[in-house]
Design a protein around this nucleic acid. Sequence first.
DNA 1: CCATGTGAATGCGTTCACAGCC
DNA 2: GGCTGTGAACGCATTCACATGG
Lengths: 231, 231
Amino acid sequence: MTLIPEPARVRLLHLMRIMEKFDQPLSSSRIEELTGWPSHTIRKDVSYLSGEGETGGTHGHFGGNFGYEPHLLVPVIRSALGLDKERKFCVVGLGRLGSAFLNEEISGSLEPELSPGGEFELAAGFDKNVNRVEILKSTVPLYPAYKIGEVVSRFGIEIAILCVPAAEVQASAEKLVAAGIRGILNFAPVPLRLPPEIVVRNVFILDELRELAIHMSPPSRERKEIQGGTL
Amino acid sequence: MTLIPEPARVRLLHLMRIMEKFDQPLSSSRIEELTGWPSHTIRKDVSYLSGEGETGGTHGHFGGNFGYEPHLLVPVIRSALGLDKERKFCVVGLGRLGSAFLNEEISGSLEPELSPGGEFELAAGFDKNVNRVEILKSTVPLYPAYKIGEVVSRFGIEIAILCVPAAEVQASAEKLVAAGIRGILNFAPVPLRLPPEIVVRNVFILDELRELAIHMSPPSRERKEIQGGTL
DNA sequence: CCATGTGAATGCGTTCACAGCC
DNA sequence: GGCTGTGAACGCATTCACATGG
């Protein structure tokens, strides 16, 4: 089977999230309504999942005679995308932004129902300021920053959400990498210089605003919802 | 001149941010070191900016005999991307997450030096909870949520950063749209259903983690820094 | 008819290779 | 030699069109 094209993988990712909320089968045209992606694109994407096979359709690898069954499709997408193993993550820097990811509505997206199979587990929070660590109440264990190395490697934490001030971000990132972190979601408005095997995803507010803005300008007859999370 | 391809526009966006910090000319190969994009891609992207022209290079539309001059290139990118007019934005929902965007390090990315020409102006903050509005100290004017309609339309605010709880997000979004907002950066883990002319960009933490995770899995000999902000 | 599934054709962004200038 | 600039070739994702089956 051919490798799944990157754009298709991202669509499947979103499709997975959508289907998790449904019980009934979803047809490709219904998915088109929900996402804006043409139905043939969806069918093609799904077809990448079944090791390429017979010309013409045997009806429904992933459903009966109508639509795709969430309980059949979702697990297949999950494993095709390598999301079938639980991963631990931590939050580094517990200011207003970082602490929002500990308890708040936002992490509602991490509730078990929405992330079945225990996809991600928030395993720790860190802050330089020992006061904060003690004052904040949280169901997640919090540690002072100097324990990053120890805790990250002991618990096998793979991912970090980085919310420290810009001035400290490079140093924090390096400490995390040394401790064995493999992926970083960086909210500080500073690019990181790290070994290439570390996966970094930056969320720069200024850039987000700019991407909104360039899509708001006249020169576009293009799709309006933008990558990062169409429906 | 042909329309600039979307991926090229995104690269130019980041290139702009990088060049803003430099005074000296940057060669395409230097940019390759900084971003990881091949130098010919950069040259091609830049070439989209000069209405397509003569075969062979007259040296430097955007520099002398070496590299691209930031003070020449940046304004051209900015106007090509439609970022040359100042836009006002607001923050809706001033919990931990929303309030982080008012003053904190994060909005450091919005300091005038980094966003020259007054690209974005934070014009207001809103919260349902009147207490919060009064207690929070901020250089930005804060209003109770029921004034959204009035304030947004009076000041011509075009963009909103939405940080309200999931349960309220659809209602807030509709209020904003009614008031004339044109773009929304949504942090609540819920997709919005809005008229297609409204540009929506979602930042779903779960999805961000998942995109990190799929790039951390074995099946990839691909680029490691991911869209949203390579350097 | 409706649906899915998939090879083949299309189209578009990337990459190549070379032209032109310092 | 260095560099930028750009048409043309390439390759890959999307789109098409049709096969298959309820």
